[in-house]
Amino acid sequence: MSDPLADSPGSWPVVSSTDLHRDGWVVALRRDLINPPGQEQGQDGAEPFGRLVVEHPGAAMALAIDVRDGVEQVCLIRQYRHPGGGTFVEIPAGICDVPGEDPVETAKRELREEVSLEASEWQHLITTYPSVGISSEVHHVYVARGLREVETGYVAEHEEAHLEVFWAPFDDLLAAVRDGRIREGPVAIATLAYAVIQSRS
Results as ranks from 00 to 15, higher is better:
residue 83 P to I: 04
residue 144 A to W: 11
residue 31 R to W: 12
residue 44 D to E: 12
residue 162 H to R: 10
residue 127 T to E: 15
residue 116 S to H: 13
residue 68 R to T: 01
residue 171 D to S: 09
residue 130 P to V: 03
residue 171 D to R: 04
residue 82 H to I: 00
residue 2 S to Y: 15
residue 83 P to D: 13
residue 188 A to G: 05
residue 25 W to F: 13
residue 146 G to A: 11
residue 122 W to H: 04
residue 58 G to N: 11
residue 147 L to H: 01
residue 115 V to M: 09
residue 18 T to E: 14
residue 198 Q to V: 01
residue 110 E to N: 03
residue 67 V to R: 14
residue 65 I to S: 02
residue 154 Y to E: 08
residue 186 P to T: 04
residue 192 L to M: 02
residue 93 A to N: 11
residue 94 G to D: 05
residue 130 P to D: 08
residue 194 Y to H: 02
residue 167 W to P: 01
residue 58 G to F: 13
residue 196 V to L: 15
residue 70 G to F: 12
residue 18 T to Y: 14
residue 163 L to F: 13
residue 28 A to T: 12
residue 121 E to N: 07
residue 149 E to M: 09
residue 133 G to S: 12
residue 5 L to C: 11
residue 148 R to Q: 14
residue 62 A to W: 06
residue 174 L to R: 11
residue 42 G to N: 01
residue 14 V to A: 10
residue 57 P to L: 10
residue 137 E to W: 08
residue 150 V to Q: 15
residue 55 E to M: 05
residue 29 L to H: 06
residue 87 T to P: 07
residue 145 R to V: 03
residue 112 R to A: 11
residue 201 S to C: 11
residue 168 A to H: 13
residue 176 A to D: 11
residue 81 R to E: 15
residue 77 I to N: 08
residue 150 V to M: 14
residue 190 A to K: 00
residue 132 V to P: 15
residue 192 L to H: 04
residue 8 S to E: 08
residue 178 R to P: 10
residue 17 S to T: 03
residue 183 R to L: 10
residue 16 S to L: 02
residue 200 R to M: 14
residue 78 R to L: 13
residue 114 E to W: 12
residue 39 Q to R: 05
residue 15 V to N: 04
residue 68 R to A: 01
residue 170 F to H: 00
residue 134 I to T: 09
residue 27 V to A: 08
residue 143 V to R: 09
residue 101 E to W: 14
residue 142 Y to G: 02
residue 72 E to T: 01
residue 26 V to W: 14
residue 122 W to Y: 11
residue 138 V to T: 12
residue 140 H to T: 02
residue 88 F to G: 01
residue 94 G to E: 02
residue 36 P to H: 04
residue 97 D to T: 02
residue 173 L to W: 13
residue 40 E to W: 08
residue 79 Q to I: 07
residue 44 D to T: 02
residue 128 T to P: 05
residue 183 R to T: 07
residue 129 Y to K: 11
residue 53 V to K: 10
residue 95 I to Q: 13
residue 166 F to K: 00
residue 127 T to S: 11
residue 120 S to H: 14
residue 155 V to E: 15
residue 123 Q to S: 09
residue 91 I to Q: 03
residue 149 E to H: 13
residue 115 V to G: 06
residue 1 M to C: 04
residue 96 C to S: 09
residue 191 T to F: 06
residue 96 C to T: 05
residue 128 T to R: 09
residue 195 A to S: 03
residue 6 A to G: 06
residue 169 P to T: 01
residue 131 S to A: 11
